[in-house]
Nucleic acid binder design. Sequence first.
DNA 1: ACCGGCCTGTTTTTT
DNA 2: ACAGGCCGGT
Length: 722
Amino acid sequence: MDLLKDLTEPQREAITYIDGPLLVVAGAGSGKTRVITRRIGYLAQQGVNPYNILALTFTNKAANEMKERVEQFCPFKGMWVSTFHSMCARILRVDAEKIGYSNTFSIYDKQDQTSALKIVMAELEIDSTSLKPAKAGGIIGNAKNNMVSAEEFAEKAASYTDRDVARVYSLYEKTLKKNNALDFDDLLLKVVELFQNNPDVLEKYQDKFKYILIDEYQDTNRTQYAIAKLLTKNCKNICATGDPDQSIYSWRGADLRNILDFEKDFKDAKLVRLEQNYRSTKMILRAASEIIKNNSMRKEKELWTENDAGSKIKVVLASDDKQEAAVIVENTDRLTRDADIKYADVAVFYRTNAQSRVIESALRDANIPYTIVGSVEFYRRKEVKDILAYLKLCVNPNDDIALSRIINVPTRGIGKVTLERLSNLARENNCGIFQILSDLTNGEGDKGVLKGKSKAAVKGFVEIFAQLKNELSNPVNKIVDKAIELTNYKQFLIETEEIKSDDKIRNIEELISAAREYDMTEPEGSLGGFLENVALVADLDNWDDEVNAVTLMTLHAAKGLEFSVVFLVGLEEGLLPIQQSRDNEFRLEEERRLCYVGITRAKKELILTRAVSRYIHGQSKSCHESRFLEEIPSDVIEFEDKTGGQSFQELHYERDEYADYPEFDDDNEFGLNAGDYVRHPRFGPGRVMKLSGYGDMAQAVVKFNMGGTKSMMIKYAKLEKV
DNA sequence: ACCGGCCTGTTTTTT
DNA sequence: ACAGGCCGGT
């Protein structure tokens, strides 16, 4: 196959420039995936050994897809295609002991991390109501993402909270080490540590990875940057692809500096821009660029397309979240009646997972097939995590967090008090709790800690692992099966869960299937390998895009995907942009990028919805229109009011206070005065009744001729003086 | 040790 | 709305 066929000049450049650092700034829908896969093929064609290629992606799903596509061009024996996290886990399995770990280390997810932090904070006698373990975890994670060690954090800690966090951080690190466990951030951080302290190890990987590709570079954090920098120290063949306008993970430590300073960081870097969009209609693209234009922290960029103009963007105003869901059902029905649009071509994006519930039940009632990406993640479910904890503890007996989770699940009469006693004993002996348990059952070290009943219980518990260890050479699905059998977990579910037991049993059986699949794809695999896979999968990785169903997902999960029909729901102040970002310019701009990402997923039809009121935490709240909606030019919009005009009666709190009593006493830096006659792009002519607030937050209350009064942010309202 | 009822808060987003 | 924590009774 001719790899350079059907390409634009910039695309060809991005594929063939293979010596020296290259940054590909690829706008949404500009054929980036195509460029990356062909580039790998081209490298192989030019005689590069696949063994020397490393491709890093953002999700496992993206990695798998890339593998599949690359396979069509060249053999990829020895090529590494994975996420940063998987790569790091793999590297650490080889040289774990060089950083003081054993290669059976556990990987802690956020839940495990919080459990560990709870224990740590109890030990330090830090009140967990004023400083929540999860909050401390967030601060520590942030530090780790910026490569700030516990010592460095302690040095810089100024506030009262930070000093507490510093103590927690330090003991947490010790606890992790004792448990032979790493959290997500550690996977990256420990690789940096490994490389910095072991030049020979670093050299080994520098020799191996002669060509490095990093996708979604705008969402890498400083630790990932450090890894990239270390690996490319000698050969400079790094190719980063990304789009600053699609950076939506700064809350996870993603640092835009990485992509903005690429040319500074890598000397003589070449820059290629892909600005032609192949995905969307002109209408959709226009709306997207008009929105993103409002970001000030941005490099100017203009996407263009030769695609059709397409139909106008539909903006629907619903009276509440239920009606919003009905709008989705209605339009999905309408569009899929069209022969060339299937359910699978339709996606619904929302800002928060909680929004999916209402939409889900509407689709279910309408008999429209759907899949939800996210919500309650499979591997986070209690029953699944319990079984996994048995397996984890079997592989890594030092994992006290896994042990505490299951020592009394199913209930075997070992309660809080006994566990506390065992835990103290472990601390005194400087070993794991499991060690204590096996010593006690061997008759060693029994100082009357356990009475008859709990002694038998402990014996039974330890026995499970003795049996499980005998299975370790079997395929993983057999081991999982055995674990369920030995623990009598199904029986436990039947006894304790009257209604949900069927579901839960199905879930743990699903775990066996997942293991079976692992056995098939990884013939050389092990239980440890399976557990690692499980720890590092994202929800999205389990999404089956072959099924003909409408896809529901968060905007964050939508990155990198495309659909013919996209619904973007909940375009309201406080939801998109989310409340917590509204007083922070930086975070506000990230919300705008999030909106941009959502819109640019759409190929043909884009439907934006918002509700006048919706249930939040069980209470009905009235909502203002999102400023992002107001940023879309009215000539690309087809507006539909489903509320029957009710929206202009409902309106906002200002109405009752001011609408009938004009106060012409205020002005502002936008040159707008109370009493001015104005025109709004969508609501037509009206009169300013009241101005309030200052600067960017300044608001105007406008009474429209078509009826009703509305308050809006002046900065975004696009009010025209008439 | 375990169960049920009451009270609280809910970071939006996730490798 | 809903889960998770806490307390008091068994």
